[in-house]
Amino acid sequence: MLGYPKSLGKLIDHLKRMPGIGQKTAQRLAFHILNLEPKGAQDLAQAILEARQKLIYCSVCFNLTEHDPCFICADPKRNQQTICVIEEPKDFITIEKIGEYQGVYHILGGSISPLEGRTPDDLKIKELVRRVTSSGIAEVILATNPNVEGEATALYIAKILKPLAVKVTRIARGIPVGGDLEFADEITMLRALEGRQEI
C-alpha cells in the first residue's frame, strides 16, 4: 500500500476484506492494533486463532459451537417441537436476548440471493426438511430478515413445508419502537397493519 510500510499495508489490506470495512475503517483498526500493548496484540491474535480452531457448526441446527450438538440442541428443557429458522448464527443471539423463546433453531447459512449467486441448494434447507419430517416438529417459525432476500427465502421454505402438515409461521414485522410513520415504506406499513394485535 502506497506510503505505508509493507507490514502495515498488508494488515490494512486484510482488514479491508472484512464485511462493512472500508479503507478508512481498516486504517483506524490497523493503527488501533498497532497501539495495543504487545500482550494485547498477542491476546487478539490468539483469540482469532482459537476461534478458528475451536468453533464448529452444530450437526443439528448449524449454529456455531465448541461442542456438538450445541448447548441449545442438547438442552432437554428446550421445546424440541418448535424450530425457529434464521439466516445466520448472529441472529440467534438477538432472539435469545429476549429470553422468551424456548424452542430450538435452524440456521440456513444465508438467504436466497440470485444477485450474489446463492440458490436454495447453497442453504441448509434440505436439512430443515429432514428435521421436520423425522422429528415430529409441530411449528416452524420463519425469522429471516425482512428484506427482499429474506422474504424470498421465507416464501420458498413455506412452500416446501406446506405439504408436510406442519404449522409454518412468520415473525411479525412493522414499525420499530421510536420510528416515525412518515419514514416507513409501504411494505413495512402493510406488515405492521397485518400484524396488528388487540390491546
Rank of each mutant, 00 (worst) to 15 (best):
L55D: 02
D180R: 09
L190I: 14
C61M: 10
E50F: 02
A51N: 09
L190P: 00
L181D: 08
L123M: 11
L11D: 07
P76C: 11
R191A: 09
P89Y: 06
F31Y: 13
K159V: 08
D68R: 02
G109K: 04
V177F: 07
T65R: 06
L8S: 02
M18D: 08
A138S: 14
M18R: 12
S134C: 12
I86M: 08
L55I: 13
I125D: 07
Q102M: 02
S113G: 08
E151W: 11
T133W: 02
L44T: 00
N145V: 10
L128N: 11
G195H: 06
I187Y: 06
L115A: 15
I112L: 01
T94L: 11
V60N: 08
L161I: 14
V166F: 11
L15Y: 05
A26K: 03
L123H: 07
I93G: 00
K54D: 06
R130H: 15
G174P: 09
I107P: 01
P19I: 12
V140F: 00
K126T: 15
A152T: 15
F183P: 10
G179R: 04
E149Q: 09
I107W: 04
V129D: 14
T65C: 13
L128H: 10
R191M: 07
C84A: 07
F31E: 05
D180C: 07
I137Q: 10
V148F: 06
L49V: 03
T119N: 09
G110I: 12
P163Q: 11
Q102H: 01
R28H: 01
Q53L: 07
R170I: 03
T82G: 06
R130F: 05
E127V: 06
T82L: 15
E87F: 05
C61G: 10
P69D: 02
E87W: 04
D13V: 04
G179F: 04
